[in-house]
Each structure stands twice: as C-alpha cells, then as structure tokens.
C-alpha cells in the first residue's frame, strides 16, 4: 500500500503541515477553553459555536497585521528567527510514528533526529531575542539558552536509559516492542528498572522545560520580561512563534507517547491503532495545559537547581540502575 516516492512525500508534507497548522490553531482554542474551565469561566464563546472559529479569526487578525522590524534591530536575523523556530518542529513530524504504517519517513535514527531537531528551537529564540535589540528580549534569550542546556542533559540521559532497554533508535520499532497490553509499555517495565515511572516524570518535566511551557516559561515570563524574546514581534512573526510553541508541544508529547506510553498500542493488547496514539497524545497535551494553569512560574535559578541537583543525579542513577539490571538480571 505504499505510494510511489514523490507522491508519498507530497502527501506527508501536506499532511504534516495540515496537522501542525490545525493542531497549533486548535490547541490554542483547547488551551483557552481549558484555562477558562480551570478558572471557572466559559472561555471564548463569540466566534462560532463554543468559539470554535476563534483561532481562525485570530489567524486572520495576525496575518493582516504589519510585520514591524524595530529600528536598530538586525533585520535579517529578526525575520529569520520565526522560520528557524518553525522548520525543525515541522521536520520532526517526519519521524513521528502515528500508527503502525503511518510514519512519514520511518528511519532507523528517528529518535536521534527528533532529539536533534528539538534543540534547534533554542537557537531560534536566542536569535529572535538577540536581534530584537530589546533589553527584556536579550535577558529572555540568555535565560532560554541556559535553561535548555540544563534540561537537555537529563532529557538525553533518560533517552539513553530507554535506548538501553529498547536497543534501537527507530521509533516505530520502539513502539512495536511495547505491544501486548499496558504492562508492556516502557513506563511500566518495572522488572527492567523499578524507577521507570520516575524516568517518565523526568522526561515530562524536561519536555515542559524544553518547550518553555509553564511552570518553566522563563523565556516569556510575562510578568517579568513583558513577553521576553517575543516582545518586539508583531503580527505573524509572533504568530509563528506561537504556533511553533504548540507544534513543539505536540512533538514532545508524541515522543513521550511513543517512548513511554506504547504509541499506537492499545492498553489491552487488542485493537491497536492510530486512535490510541492520538488519545494518549491529547491526554498528555491536556496535562501540559492543566499544569500551566495550576502552578506559578519557577525561579530561574530554582529551575537550574532542579535540573543540575535533582534531575541529572536521578536520571544518572536510573541509567546506572538500568544498566546493572540489564546486565545481571536479564540474560
């Protein structure tokens, strides 16, 4: 059932773009509705039924606004930054295993690619912040870099732990290994490593930090840095950053689903399919929204302390434990 190569590519490019676009637009709606419900408000109600057309109205508004490059800003880098932030997020979609046969480009190094592209968005925010020629933006850019450097390490340690268990970088293969019921998912593989749920929590925290989501939204920190690196962006420049944030959340949650929660595998062993993947994905995304609207922001150094003093030691510990257990317990 495979299409010839060029058509296959075009189909997946279109599919990924549509998926990212719709997700970005409707996650904004979900976020706003969700936030409203957490705060006992109705949320957007005016544009379309239940405010469902609100994202479209927002997009039209953002598109129709002038792109302002502040005087004194580095015009090239300033315009480049939104492109740089969006591109890697889109590319990562190529390797996400939505279903058993639903991957744009199954790759033997899919996980590596996802992790590698995942860290480019830091550079984009740095570029945007630096090029804006705004003090708040520069502070924000500096924060983003140290934050992401700090969280890349525990994230990768967790990924390495997982690699030792799965023995492959192919995301589809990783999911396939988790077939046969929820007890076979990586997060519950307690016989390989009793600390697997902890590993998952670390991965999730790092994911929040990597995507600059609350409570780690140091980059935006609206009550401190106005809008951080995005302060000077108007119109679609801002819109792209905004979309990229949601695209990154989707990528991050999709990775968490594939790595820990068994991807498209059904929790009961039968009836696996893309539906399960999406369900798990959106449950995770809901959790991200839920966390954002529950907690206050962390301190900046508190965030670094959390990474260097807690997450890295623990993830190193689980890495060590897993290697020992793999060596001695499983033949």
């Amino acid at each position: 059932m495979t299409l010839p190569e060029p058509y296959r590519l075009a189909a997946f490019v279109l599919g990924a773009l549509a998926f990212v676009g719709l997700n970005a637009a409707y996650l904004v709606w979900v976020e706003r509705k969700g936030a409203a419900r957490f705060q006992r408000r109705p949320g957007p109600t005016e544009v379309g039924p239940e405010g469902l057309l609100q994202p479209i109205a927002d997009a039209i508004k953002l598109l129709s606004k002038q792109v302002i490059v502040p005087p004194g800003a580095d015009a090239l880098l300033f315009r480049l930054a939104p492109a740089v932030v969006m591109a890697p997020a889109l590319m990562t979609f190529a390797v996400l295993p939505f279903g058993a046969h639903l991957t744009a480009r199954p790759m033997s190094v899919g996980l590596l690619l996802a992790v590698a592209f995942g860290s480019i968005n830091v550079m984009a925010i740095l570029l945007g912040g630096w090029a804006s020629r705004n003090k708040y933006a520069i502070i924000s850019a500096a924060r983003v870099v140290s934050q992401n450097v700090a969280y890349e390490i525990p994230l990768l340690l967790v990924v390495i732990t997982l690699l030792m268990i799965t023995g492959t970088l192919d995301l589809s293969e990783i999911v396939r290994q988790q077939a046969g019921g929820f007890w076979r998912w990586n997060v519950f593989k307690l016989w390989v490593n009793p600390l697997m749920p902890v590993t998952f929590v670390i991965f999730f925290i790092c994911l929040l930090a990597e995507t600059n989501r609350a409570p780690f939204d140091m980059a935006e920190a609206e009550s401190e840095l106005v809008a951080g690196a995005f302060t000077e962006y108007a119109g679609m420049g801002f819109g792209v950053f905004f979309m990229a944030e949601y695209a990154n959340i989707v990528v991050g949650c999709a990775l968490a689903t594939a790595l820990f929660l068994g991807g498209w595998q059904s929790p009961f062993g039968i009836g696996s399919g893309v539906g399960w993947f999406l369900l798990k994905l959106y449950l995770l995304i809901f959790t991200v929204v839920w966390i954002r609207w529950t907690f206050p922001r962390t301190q900046f150094y508190g965030l670094l302390n959390l990474s260097w003093k807690i997450l890295i030691p623990i993830s190193l510990g689980t890495l060590g434990l897993t290697s020992v257990l793999l060596k001695f317990i499983r033949p």
Partner: peptide, 15 residues
C-alpha cells in the same frame, strides 16, 4: 500570584 506566573488563583480570588 499573577506576578509569580500563576494565573488561575487570581480568578478564584476575584470570584
């Protein structure tokens, strides 16, 4: 709480 980045308590308090 809003200064600290938590938005939800503000609305509970205003309620």
């Amino acid at each position: 709480l809003l200064d600290l980045g938590g938005f939800t308590p503000l609305l509970y308090a205003f309620d």
